[in-house]
Design a protein around this nucleic acid. Structure first.
Lengths: 350, 350
DNA sequence: GTGAAAGCGCTAACAT
DNA sequence: ATGTTAGCGCTTTCAC
């Protein structure tokens, strides 16, 4: 792909000259800087005639307000920082969408970064955001260690946990009940008559993974089965299609009497890799192997075998998180918890 | 979904106290502000003993550097703004991923926003970024009107066009040849024996849409056919699965002798809606209707009918764009053009 | 309604 | 090696 790129260079150098400041504008318009500031911020306090002169100067000089100076002086905060686990996961981009929609109402800007489940990266981005003076941060933590998030919150930058209930009452959170989700999935597979279920899960350092596992185990325990015997947890190397491929191959290598007849995937990306691999190996879904995913992404219903999946209110998750950021100073923190929903399709029904 | 959310409120108020400044730190450590600044920026210029004292004070006071003041004074630019057409389109999130990967090397932060193909929104975000003092902007323009992008560039904030060749030599761009892409798709369908092809396209205000149409028409012209007769362009209401559904329904309403036997979709999201609708209507793909998409997103190969699609080097597109932002002041602008590639799958082969 | 001036927190230049 | 200080561009009193 790289070799195919063509590149043409021109010779004119990029621009560089200093940006016009409010002082330049004042000078050009023959007014004081305070007046220019007023034109910008409280236009009614200045006579139409002067205002027009100032506006002309602004246009003339291509003046663009310096946000840093503005923020430094006025403390005006107009951006929000978001750190999600994975920028390539539709679950998170949908949530980001919800956040942006809500932010737009107040013409805030969104800064997004993906931590790729790396705590260090998460810390770095949050620190950068904080220095940048964001109004607040929304973060889906990579690990259980959220001390740095609490610290940010204590230093005065509001923080909201995304897809993760807050372990402390001071910080707001928006999450979906993952224990319930894991349970839904496994209960469904049991109802379909499966007795050996593989769970392609991510590392337990990620709370969502741990909770879904807990839910899965509860479903088994409730049905009187021994979770250890009926449920085989396989940790995938990555929460991606490739990770799913690796995971299912591990399951397929088992002796026939140990081999699972159903696989529950911690997300739809992983399920995608599973379906791909099963198809390549000529294993029929759901006849020979039932598959359940998680997130119910857009394409889940349109796959070769429509995928049963646990649906989460993603966009809503984002808007709610943003809402929590905008509550008046002094409002009580809130722990919002949504309920997931199982969407049954062909991939798991005989 | 909304009704299912549970919310618990606690009573402790959020934090508020003023952040410690460099002056506070200096006072606490018994040194001058300049020394604190040095500890922060050039640690070797300060004696280990003093440094430790300062660091202790920093920890003690929970000091976080004020980025606005820093940027105001030093002109240090550490963020990049990106505006893409659609935050829910994997094509753009993959590109964003590429951008972030590249940015991380210089520990820059990424601000992302989606314009939803709205010029006004695009303008607003760019303005916000510019005020915020970003080092540069990367934008996939919603329309042909890119005067505001040029203006930003002229005012000294470097700008790179994403997925769009620059019409002017001063501004760098990274794009994929969409004419070639449109041509590839239609040539393929012609080779498969189709004589009436529908093109579910977006509005021609979007350059990608226009170019892909041009490529499609060229393929027909080159083969000696009359593009007007063999190609039916249908403008979808949205570049989404729902848009695709609306578009294909329009095609299906045509009299049998006018009804297309193949449909080329301007992106895979639209193709997803088309496949979904055809399946619901019981129309066989590819036997009764061939389908070709664009972007070759992750799930294209795993759909009920694996989707033929035009692949673009998305992540690479992003990293290249970011690269262009980081070139030394004075480097010549570059117009990078990638070549797309047709990935043939079942959805279009009889 | 407008001007003058202080000062937000920081870095860099200069002085010691 | 450390202290002192000017000033980045802006908003916000406070006079007039």
């Amino acid at each position: 792909m790289e070799g195919m790129a063509t590149s043409t260079k021109a010779s004119s150098p990029p621009p560089s000259r200093r940006r016009a400041s409010i002082t330049d504008v004042a000078k050009a318009a023959g007014v004081a800087v305070g007046t220019v500031s007023n034109v910008l911020n409280k236009p009614d306090r200045v006579l139409p005639a002067t205002r027009e002169r100032v506006e002309a100067a602004i246009a003339e000089l291509n003046f663009v307000r310096n946000g840093s100076a503005r923020q430094l002086r006025a403390g005006t905060l107009t951006s929000v920082g978001v750190v999600v686990l994975d920028l390539s996961n539709p679950f998170f981009t949908d949530a980001a969408r919800g956040i942006q929609d809500r932010l737009e109402r107040d013409s805030f800007t969104l800064m997004v970064a993906g931590s790729d489940e790396d705590l260090d990266r998460e810390r770095r981005y949050l620190r950068l955001y904080e220095e940048h003076g964001v109004q607040g941060v929304i973060v889906s933590p990579a690990t259980d260690d959220i001390d740095h998030v609490l610290a940010i919150h204590e230093r005065g930058t509001s923080a909201v946990l995304l897809d993760r209930p807050s372990p402390v009452p001071e910080v707001s959170s928006v999450a979906v009940d993952d224990v319930a989700g894991g349970r839904l999935a496994v209960e469904h597979l049991l109802a379909q008559g499966h007795e050996r279920i593989a769970f392609l899960n991510g590392p337990h350092t990620i709370r969502q993974c741990r909770d879904r596992m807990a839910g899965a185990a509860m479903a088994l325990a409730d049905s009187g089965r021994d979770p250890g015997a009926a449920l085989l947890e396989i940790t995938v190397p990555a929460l991606s299609p490739d990770g799913g491929e690796a995971g299912i191959r591990e399951a397929l290598e088992l002796a026939p009497d140990r081999r699972p007849t159903a696989v529950f995937c911690v997300n739809d990306l992983v399920a995608l890799g599973v379906l791909r691999t099963l198809r390549r190996e000529g294993i029929q879904v759901p006849e020979e192997m039932a598959v359940v995913g998680y997130d119910d992404v857009t394409f889940a219903a349109e796959l070769a075998t429509p995928l049963t999946s646990v649906r989460q209110p993603t966009v809503e998750l984002g808007t709610r998180a943003a809402d929590l950021l905008f509550r008046p100073e002094g409002a009580a923190p809130e722990q919002v918890m949504f309920e997931p929903q199982l969407v049954v399709r062909e991939s798991s029904t005989r």
